Amino acid sequence: MLAQLAAARSALTQATRGLSDEQAGERPTVSALCSGGLVKHVASAEENWLRFVAEGPSAMCYDLPEGVTWADIVAGTAREYPQWMIDHESGFRMLPGETLAGVLARHEQVAARTEQIIAAVPDLPAAHPLPEAPWHEPGAAYSVRRVLTHLIAETAQHAGHADILRETLDGRRSG
């Protein structure tokens, strides 16, 4: 599973090879996605899920500000948005001062940490309950194996997005 995750990571980062910082932040399609943002998002998602593996559901907090409901969030009428949601959205963009080299280095650090955490897990079927959130089935739990499967799928999906962005930017394909 770790080899498959590494292959998906490689496909994602391959799509950024040779891009300038400016190109990595461009959004060349109608999507709000950019190549550098995809790498940032994948690294953050992997980091969050591996914290879940190591610490359980307390590692993922989806608290809302007082007086704000999920219905407010979905309708876009919330008077305030939680910081975790703002950070999640920022994770899809290259922010001022960020470089592609820096984003890729963080991605590599997260990957190395994932390898360490998984090597220390004695049992891939070990599971934790998922924290309450509208996108999680009530009462569901994820095993370590399920987390890895999710990360492989998400990373591969975003590698495909990155291929489209790269081809749109300069006509090159990574594969």
Score class of each variant (00 low, 15 high):
residue 120 A to W: 02
residue 130 L to H: 02
residue 58 S to Y: 02
residue 70 W to C: 13
residue 58 S to H: 11
residue 57 P to E: 09
residue 35 S to W: 06
residue 118 I to W: 08
residue 137 E to K: 14
residue 123 D to N: 08
residue 48 N to A: 05
residue 3 A to F: 11
residue 11 A to S: 07
residue 60 M to Y: 05
residue 118 I to Y: 13
residue 20 S to F: 14
residue 128 H to Y: 10
residue 65 P to R: 01
residue 52 F to A: 01
residue 85 M to F: 12
residue 69 T to Y: 12
residue 67 G to F: 06
residue 145 R to A: 08
residue 8 A to E: 13
residue 132 E to G: 06
residue 53 V to G: 06
residue 4 Q to M: 10
residue 56 G to E: 00
residue 139 G to C: 14
residue 109 Q to D: 14
residue 133 A to L: 08
residue 64 L to S: 06
residue 118 I to L: 11
residue 167 E to I: 09
residue 5 L to F: 06
residue 162 A to R: 00
residue 160 G to I: 02
residue 55 E to V: 00
residue 19 L to Y: 15
residue 129 P to W: 08
residue 72 D to Y: 01
residue 53 V to P: 10
residue 107 H to A: 15
residue 134 P to F: 03
residue 18 G to K: 03
residue 49 W to Q: 01
residue 99 T to W: 01
residue 30 V to R: 08
residue 101 A to W: 04
residue 31 S to I: 03
residue 50 L to I: 13
residue 151 L to T: 08
residue 11 A to H: 09
residue 10 S to D: 15
residue 8 A to V: 14
residue 71 A to P: 01
residue 157 Q to L: 00
residue 132 E to N: 02
residue 124 L to M: 11
residue 151 L to S: 04
residue 63 D to S: 10
residue 171 G to M: 12
residue 73 I to S: 11
residue 56 G to V: 01
residue 98 E to S: 14
residue 133 A to Y: 05
residue 148 L to I: 10
residue 10 S to E: 15
residue 93 R to Q: 13
residue 152 I to T: 13
residue 31 S to M: 11
residue 30 V to F: 01
residue 77 T to A: 07
residue 19 L to P: 07
residue 91 G to P: 02
residue 43 A to P: 04
